[in-house]
Design a protein around this nucleic acid. Structure first.
Lengths: 143, 143
DNA sequence: TATGAAATTGATGACCC
DNA sequence: GGGTCATCAATTTCATA
């Protein structure tokens, strides 16, 4: 993990369709060497996968919300139960008054209610507090 | 935007290195036709860009936190001021007691303090409440 | 680990349905 | 819109240092 690896990661985050020849030139290596470095970054799991960034609103998910969940121990398979709800994008165990934080995307607030109802049925959930996003300033990839 | 477009988006989210020939076969089209559909999805902005998903911890950003900000009107260029802080991954205007929600990634809690100090200096900020993530169950791309 | 070149595979555009 | 084909470009592998 040196500066060249970090530069390659930055370039690929911006645009993963760049050719290895172009990447190599940008970091002062041959295309083959750039390729080999990227291959190893993938192998080591630093680069998890190549994917596309999608406009969620265009796919009919216009409402983003965060839900703080109060509850007990998340020992069982609460994680799996939450993962089974397709509208939940992120689930974190947090410090503080609540103990889980979810990020949820739904077409509207109507569908958000349905998701909250399902969340409430997950083992150990005793209460929820919902934060609806009114406007997103930015959602970006860190360099 | 039909079911084939949605399938193509799903396939590319899983793995954007798939060839158009493979994509076409998966959705019952020729490679050329699949290519044309994906081109139009990009053109329309439904697909924003092709990127890589990176293991943040491997890049030295081990601590994820959310910060709820109380404050006034975000009319000026608060958005730009926040965007200038590189550790802030997301910034949302929210409904509820606070009025902004930030997602922050730092190497440790020490650096989180530095970021909070900078956030406090942004125009209109009167208070912050920080939620530190203890464990992430998942952070995924919605299908 | 890097280079340079060879071989394979994929992208892209013109043309027709 | 989609299919097919020809051309051009990129990926991937390998011999060599």
């Amino acid at each position: 993990m040196d500066d060249i690896d970090r530069m390659l990661i930055g370039l690929l985050q911006e645009d993963a369709t760049r050719s290895y020849a172009v990447l190599g030139k940008a970091v002062g290596l041959s295309g083959g060497a750039a390729h080999e470095r990227v291959r190893k970054l993938r192998e080591r799991g630093v680069i998890r996968r190549t994917t596309i960034e999608v406009d969620q609103a265009a796919l009919g998910r216009a409402v983003t919300s965060y839900v703080m969940i109060e509850g007990g121990s998340w020992m069982g398979d609460s994680a799996a139960e939450l993962a089974a709800i397709p509208e939940i994008e992120e689930a974190h165990v947090i410090a503080g008054p609540a103990s889980l934080l979810l990020k949820i995307r739904t077409p509207g607030t109507r569908e958000l209610q349905d998701v909250l109802r399902r969340v409430f049925q997950v083992d150990g959930v005793t209460g929820t507090r919902t934060i609806v996003v009114l406007e997103t300033f930015f959602e970006r990839t860190l360099k």
